[in-house]
Design a protein around this nucleic acid. Structure first.
Lengths: 114, 114
DNA sequence: TTTAAGCGCAACAAAATGGTTGCGCATTCA
DNA sequence: TGAATGCGCAACCATTTTGTTGCGCTTAAA
């Protein structure tokens, strides 16, 4: 396989993992909180969440694995902060797909008309 | 629960389902093809895909469930076409999150500085 | 120096996901 | 009409995901 094809596959994989990370209500609302407020500890994020602390921890690790958040240990607390880069990449990807679709639509239209 | 809260939950759910639909390499490449080329049948989409036709069918149904594609039956073929709306919604959502984060960052900064 | 808070690890269970195979029905083509 | 194409349905299997509980370790607080 060519070098660019390999890179393409890797990008595809990473992108899919970010999409997958956002494909869950619990994680989406965690993102909502972390992109809004300051970095927060696991216990803090688990408060008022129905789920146990452990469940929240797992979700946070998924988000971290996709690069959407990062964590640092401060004393006995694990503090999570939002990371905007992956979401920016997704946005630009979605933009490219939309543009592609517009072009395709135009082509199809002219094909039908002629 | 308030009316706007209910609507908010429903939106969250729908959005999560779209993200989840895109959170898979196979489905991402299907989207790539459908947003690029013309509507295509299942067999066509399954060609050169490693996976069986049935597997591709399942993926297409997931995409359809999230509203990212739609299908119509033409004779003995099931033809799938791209639908841009849900991805547009995601893009605007990601945009809002980014803006929110910019604001939050500014607030945090001024908090630290004072 | 006890006590309590915050986590991580491990084991476990249930449900969802991703994939296969076999089969039968409808539609098209020769 | 008979053969072949395109699908859908159902059963089934392996793996991953989502969540829980129990326990022990470290760090902070009284």
């Amino acid at each position: 396989m060519s070098r660019t094809a390999l890179r393409g596959r890797a990008q595809l994989k990473g992108r899919a993992s970010v999409f997958a990370a956002l494909g869950d209500e619990t994680r989406l609302s965690l993102i909502g909180r972390l992109s809004n407020g300051p970095p927060q500890s696991i216990s803090r994020l688990a408060e008022g969440s129905m789920l146990t602390r452990q469940a929240i921890t797992k979700h946070l690790r998924v988000l971290e694995g996709a690069g959407v958040v990062r964590s640092i240990r401060i004393g006995r607390e694990s503090v999570f902060a939002f990371r905007p880069e992956p979401l920016r990449e997704l946005r630009s990807y979605l933009e490219r797909v939309s543009e592609q679709w517009d072009d395709t639509l135009a082509r199809l239209k002219s094909f039908v008309e002629n």
